[in-house]
């Protein structure tokens, strides 16, 4: 199978969906000459730096028959559009009694590890998960990125699509032609016996690397990638934990009220899964600090293979 980068996979998905449905339009603060040439500047909107306005414009156009794909740039910049996300997009369908659909996709990059310091290294997906009413996507491979972006654009609800910055240039196999990944379905990236490691985005790769290393010691990790945070595929995660009896969750957001916390809760509140646990669960998350700039500090703030390995040994002890 051909290998392309995460960023190329996303670009392909967008182009294919724009070709497939002329109601798909894009809004972003950076120009996209390739897309503009292909689809024209009516559908490929270059916007002023007015996140609140174009976040709501995407919503309003979605409620008026279009399928906007709004690119916030970094998730960082979405925070100046919080009214439109929190008060409007996440609530608009339910509060109006389901009388209209709002098929809008909000794309943003996320995550640290790029030496761009606190404001540009954020992983706040759990803030968005908390708002009932948004679907939340966080892929880890080029194939999933492509397939899930296509599903997000076709979905009739507001979707927030997180694109981990450290994954942008990573490569992986992506099938030719139509490739769609359903929203709400986790993927077992590596089957194993001893410990379930649920990784998010970049940390799926890191968990897989740790799995390779520990395999030499005869430790068998099962690496599960939720891919979608809302709706979360609790069944798949629980099934894995029932098999292994041990759980480590790895993510680069701070642990408090995080996606990792949600995953742990979903696992432990299920009676059958709880009874299958053979050790306390572990979260490997970022330190509760704004991500610092200097490389040694940044590395200390974020999870790494050593900390993942330590957590795995702890649940095996």
């Amino acid at each position: 199978m051909r290998e392309i980068t995460f960023a190329q996979a996303l670009e392909e998905a967008l182009i294919e969906e724009m070709e497939r449905d002329e109601r798909v339009i894009t809004l972003a603060t950076t120009r996209a000459p390739g897309l503009e040439n292909k689809f024209g500047d009516k559908r490929v909107r270059f916007t002023p730096i007015s996140e609140a306005a174009f976040t709501g414009i995407g919503l309003g156009a979605a409620g008026s028959g279009f399928r906007p794909v709004v690119h916030w740039g970094m998730v960082t910049f979405s925070f100046v559009a919080m009214d439109q996300i929190v008060n409007q997009a996440s609530k608009i369908r339910y509060m109006f009694g389901g009388q209209a659909d709002f098929p809008v996709t909000y794309r943003c990059t996320t995550g640290g590890g790029m030496q761009v310091a606190a404001q540009h290294s954020q992983s706040p997906y759990s803030m968005f998960m908390h708002l009932a009413g948004l679907k939340i996507i966080l892929p880890s491979t080029p194939a999933d990125a492509k397939g899930l972006l296509k599903s997000s654009i076709r979905d009739n609800n507001p979707v927030v699509f997180f694109e981990c910055s450290r994954l942008a240039s990573t490569t992986g196999p992506v099938p030719d032609g139509e490739h769609v990944v359903p929203i709400g379905v986790a993927d077992v990236k590596r089957a194993g016996r001893d410990v379930t490691v649920v990784g998010l985005a970049y940390y799926v790769r890191e968990a897989l690397a740790v799995a390779d290393t520990l395999a030499a010691e005869g430790i068998s990790l099962e690496v599960v990638d939720p891919r979608t945070l809302v709706p979360m595929d609790a069944d798949a995660i629980r099934a894995s934990v029932r098999k292994t009896g041990r759980l480590v969750v790895v993510d680069e957001a701070p642990a408090t009220c995080s996606a990792a916390s949600e995953i742990v809760a979903l696992v432990t509140e299920d009676a059958q899964t709880f009874r299958a646990l053979r050790a306390p669960v572990q979260r490997v998350c970022a330190a509760p600090v704004p991500v610092p700039f200097s490389p040694p500090l940044e590395q200390a703030a974020l999870p790494d293979r050593v900390r993942i390995t330590t957590a795995i040994r702890r649940v095996l002890a």
Binding site: R45, A52, A53, F54, T55, G56, I57, G58, L59, G60, A61, A62, G63, S64, F66, P68, Q84, Q88
Partner: peptide, 8 residues
């Protein structure tokens, strides 16, 4: 903003 989206 929603009005602008409808107008777009």
């Amino acid at each position: 903003p929603i009005a602008c989206g409808a107008a777009l």
